[in-house]
């Protein structure tokens, strides 16, 4: 995320890529792993598939899309 002064375009592209991954949820599992490591070390961590299923179930049990 840190901007490189010599390659502003590349830095912008990298920032956009990071934004896109996070906003789409593409990096959700990595963020989850980081959260678990930081806040709940030693506790069991869900696998990728279980984490994906769980997060989808949670996302779609409330109002998450509008008219």
């Amino acid at each position: 995320m840190s901007p490189a002064p010599h390659a502003p375009l590349a830095a912008t592209a990298a920032r956009f890529w990071a934004w896109l991954r996070e906003v789409s949820g593409d990096d959700a599992y990595e963020r989850y792993q980081r959260h678990q490591a930081a806040h709940h070390p030693g506790e069991p961590v869900l696998g990728r598939r279980a984490h994906y299923e769980e997060s989808q179930r949670r996302k779609w049990s409330g109002v998450s899309r509008c008219c």
């Binding site: 896109l20 789409s24 599992y29």
Partner: peptide
Amino acid sequence: YLRFWRPGRVL
């Protein structure tokens, strides 16, 4: 694809 082959790779 997102469930079995590449779980969670949304992009």
